[in-house]
Design a protein around this nucleic acid. Structure first.
Lengths: 443, 443
DNA sequence: GTGTCGGCCGTCTGCCGACAA
DNA sequence: TTGTCGGCAGACGGCCGACAC
């Protein structure tokens, strides 16, 4: 992944710094491209950094597992409590893949003790924009033969209104991507039956971004009446190629040595978090860690639920009365939603491209160190789990405490407004409905 | 740079290993793409590894200089004498950029002492193929309007012979690139005046490799009657983007820590050498190091010559009688060539895309440590130089002893067959002629 | 409501020799 | 000897509604 532009998480859109070569990435768009499951800790907050998880991401990026005969860094604990000094959003200049650069400073021993006593920071704000849509591209969308078929409700909600008195109604749309590039599209409402289409300009975009059927595009209509445009590539197998800048061994040693040096001297160090390259969320808010580790009781045999992003969205039958629950975030506040399944009725819940169904439920089968020799007493992926369904083979057999939601205990997270699905949906919240309701979810 | 395929330097072409996913790169083609100035030490030989130079390459790849407040590795000397256990040639799957992966093992203290006593290995063999041509692409070559104009003598030497009885003479060429991909071209001899052209298939190649005017393509006709096809991209400014796998600081720490660990334990470590990404040749044959450091006398004021790769090839007038000299290599043997310039006559010497003229001559202005604080007593770029001509600004102000050829002393290198240009050129040697002679150099 | 197709037209690709550097 | 151009024919891009799921 090669980076071109960057932005501070606190700066706005389209602001070019005085250096001229560094652009600021739009935070809304970055989060939309990253997906609803990805959130970044707040600048200034305290976080927990897991060298193990970082190592996993590097291993995924280099396609190479950690070597056995490695130098040990006995002074480096499996988790470092750090102050998060800076978060910078990046996007790959070639692929638009998002990543975040974080500057961390390990807390001193005294500060670490205080960390557990001081009032915890609120959870991170996931900045999923409300006025947007995301569509997985079809073969027709990516073919050179035609344009892009815009889902009707999406076009009406996200695009500027057309003058339907015209025949046919049409306008020029200008959208900007993560790199602040401008893309122009002819938006037309025609055909029998009538439909929204992007024609002129669409194929240029598809070929420039090298989109293929299965990839997703998303449009955002933000508060400044700007149209933003992002992509999420389908997870294609074996796309990760080893880099040739540094050997994977040296990279592993480098991340460990850098963290160990920073921990020993309480100095700052910098990491890259590639949320879509690997599922290792190795920097998490301290409060999330404390809640999960010290305020949640888990035991073998306990049932849990976990959120995943999936490509498909098949409908399945519910075989038992069950509780579905979900964290939704809006403006720095977290909402806990729960409701009941009724046996025999088909359910499938979809927010954007993200599935929430019982394939992602399981049972805790054990709690132990993932790597007792190298990382004893680590909470990183300390929970062994069994998944309910046959797709379990694709799912990791180990998760971390803070990734799962135990179903038998009430959530310990600050629940500002517990909601039930049957209540009217507050406007401004991300839409989240069953299939029978109107929503903007595609597919 | 992301790698797909690899090969041992000792294996042949097109041999797929049993794993099935690792292909073997053709060594001839790799060296042709790397250029005549790039040579790799022999597997099994002893080499000198310079962490400083490695650090420079990483800095060039990450676009980031080394940070000031870095952890020190006082146990790591500025040069490590190593055994070279393995050399693997790679090529970037996206750009075809070549690089080499080397596995090094630092010698123990006793072995290091022996290294200076034992007979030195012969110099490395630069494997530039003899039967090949390289052409810099013109605007017409890369335009969609037409095909590729093949220089006549190149086509006649490198391509399989056409049947000139046919009208027009034509054939299908099949060439393989570094990744063993097959490219088919229609080779036709037509037009008025007659010329060799590649038509059908050429534009597919140009767009697949994303070639632009100024890039070079090269064809090799090897001993197995296979046609090989490589590219050398023009050095475009600012093409290097920082990677987001690991922070540049961590990469620097990683390479130092990996080398220090290997040196402390006499264990193997792995590095990547990107010859076209940066001019840091940080692994050199031990014999080259010993000759330069211990058997060559240099002093301030001394004149020297150094070889460079350039994009242009302008003819210039020689203003004084001068000695041109050059190392040529063939089958593990080095040849020293020298001849005299005559004032007032235009000279330009070109082997392939490589220029040898007096722009690359200079004077030694000082000898001192490049980084006295971090790397005291290092020979890496210890020679401060002044270049003769105005292009000096683009040239590095510091070079290493083994990169330059002092002009006032006879070379210390084993000179098997000192040649003069006026002698008949031995067949099998790389062609190297003045402009008035026939040769295969283009431009 | 939307994915894919046939139809149709216009642009661009790509092969040719002319011509000049 | 070879880089670029005009000419020309055919392929493909790309806009349209039809139709089916």
């Amino acid at each position: 992944m090669r980076l071109s532009s960057s932005s501070s998480s606190t700066t706005g859109f389209n602001q070019v710094t005085r250096e001229g070569d560094k652009k600021c990435l739009n935070s809304e768009l970055w989060h939309a491209c990253a997906g609803p499951l990805v959130s970044l800790p707040h600048v200034g907050s305290r976080v927990v950094y897991f060298p193990q998880g970082h190592s996993e991401q590097v291993a995924a990026s280099t396609n190479k597992e950690v070597d056995a005969h490695f130098p040990n860094y006995p002074s480096l604990p499996p988790q470092l409590i750090c102050q998060l000094h800076n978060v910078t959003m990046h996007a790959d200049v070639e692929t638009d893949e998002v990543c975040a650069q974080m500057t961390l400073q390990p807390l001193s021993q005294e500060d670490q003790k205080d960390a557990y006593l001081l009032p915890a920071e609120l959870g991170t704000a996931s900045k999923q924009p409300s006025n947007y849509f995301c569509k997985t591209l079809t073969a027709s969308d990516t073919s050179t033969h035609g344009g892009f078929s815009v889902p009707r409700r999406a076009a009406e909600k996200v695009f500027p209104p057309l003058d339907y008195a015209l025949t046919p109604p049409a306008q020029e749309l200008i959208a900007r991507d993560l790199h602040d590039n401008e893309w122009k599209f002819r938006h037309i409402f025609r055909g029998q039956p009538k439909r929204h289409l992007l024609t002129t300009g669409w194929s240029v975009f598809v070929s420039a971004k090298r989109l293929v059927a299965g990839d997703s595009v998303l449009f955002i209509w933000n508060e400044k009446n700007q149209l933003l445009l992002g992509i999420r590539r389908a997870t294609r197998p074996q796309t990760v190629m080893p880099s040739s800048v540094l050997s994977s061994d040296s990279m592993h040693i480098g991340l460990l040595a850098a963290a160990a040096h920073a921990a020993a001297t309480n100095s700052r160090f910098t990491i890259f978090y590639n949320p879509r390259a690997s599922p290792s969320e190795f920097v998490i808010p301290l409060v999330k860690y404390i809640k999960a580790v010290y305020h949640t009781r888990v035991s073998v045999g306990m049932r849990f639920r976990m959120l995943f992003e999936t490509e498909e969205s098949s409908v399945r039958r519910c075989t038992q009365t069950d509780i579905a629950c979900l964290w939704l975030s809006c403006n720095s506040l977290w909402f806990w939603v729960e409701w009941s399944f009724v046996p025999g009725i088909s359910y499938s819940f979809l927010v954007d491209n993200f599935n929430f169904d019982s394939r992602y439920m399981g049972t805790i089968t054990g709690i132990s160190d993932l790597d007792p020799a190298r990382w004893p007493n680590s909470y990183w992926r300390s929970v062994k789990v069994g998944w309910d369904e046959s797709t379990a083979g694709e799912r990791q057999p180990r998760v971390s405490l803070w990734e799962i939601e135990p179903l038998t205990t009430f959530p310990m997270y600050p629940s500002a407004f517990p909601l039930r699905l049957k209540r009217p949906w507050p406007s401004g919240l991300p839409s989240f409905h069953g299939l029978k309701d109107d929503d903007l979810s595609i597919n």
